[in-house]
């Protein structure tokens, strides 16, 4: 209908479908990578937790910032640019724990067992999105009001109530 009114072609339905197909294909590829590439890894580790770094805050010495106070003077790297002179971080954690995770390829790594479930992220994303939208629809029942609900466009003068010399 808009075609005639606007004198412009509307979005081509076939074009949309073509885009959607590409999209589905991509989704399939990435799920496939997960299953095919990482799958065996997941199966072999099933039931075992991967290395789980303990929270720095579990250690009271780290959790309590007061203990970090002596470090605060040089808290942020002021004088030095070079990495070896990096001052201590107040929370005390360093980048060491990251070394084994930086490689491209190999086995799938993650912090939690559930991350190793094939297509976990795709499913989580799908579910989360659906939940989000449906929850938002419910939310709308409560918070949606008229566009001029607050009456912000009214002239400002209405806000002067008091007689002068009041009180």
């Amino acid at each position: 209908m808009s075609e005639h009114e606007h004198g412009l072609p509307s979005v081509d339905a076939r074009g949309v479908k073509r885009v959607l197909w590409i999209f589905y294909a991509a989704l399939a590829v990435f799920i496939a990578i997960d299953v095919v590439w990482f799958g065996p890894d997941w199966l072999s580790n099933l039931g075992q937790d991967t290395h789980h770094v303990e929270s720095a805050y579990a250690d009271p010495a780290h959790a309590d910032p007061a203990h970090a106070a002596p470090d605060t003077e040089e808290h942020w790297p002021n004088a030095e640019d070079s990495p070896q002179d990096q001052p201590q971080h107040p929370v005390g954690h360093t980048a060491e724990t990251r070394t084994d995770q930086a490689s491209f390829g190999g086995h799938k790594h993650g912090h939690y067992a559930f991350e190793k479930v094939p297509a976990f992220h795709a499913l989580y994303g799908f579910a989360g999105f659906v939940f989000l939208v449906l929850a938002a629809r419910v939310l709308r029942l409560f918070v949606m009001k008229d566009e001029d609900y607050y009456g912000d466009d009214a002239p400002l003068d209405a806000e002067q109530h008091a007689e002068d010399g009041h009180a």
Partner: peptide, 10 residues
């Protein structure tokens, strides 16, 4: 990418 595409699928 999975996360994004999954959401988009939704």
């Amino acid at each position: 990418t999975q996360l994004l595409l999954g959401s988009a699928a939704a």
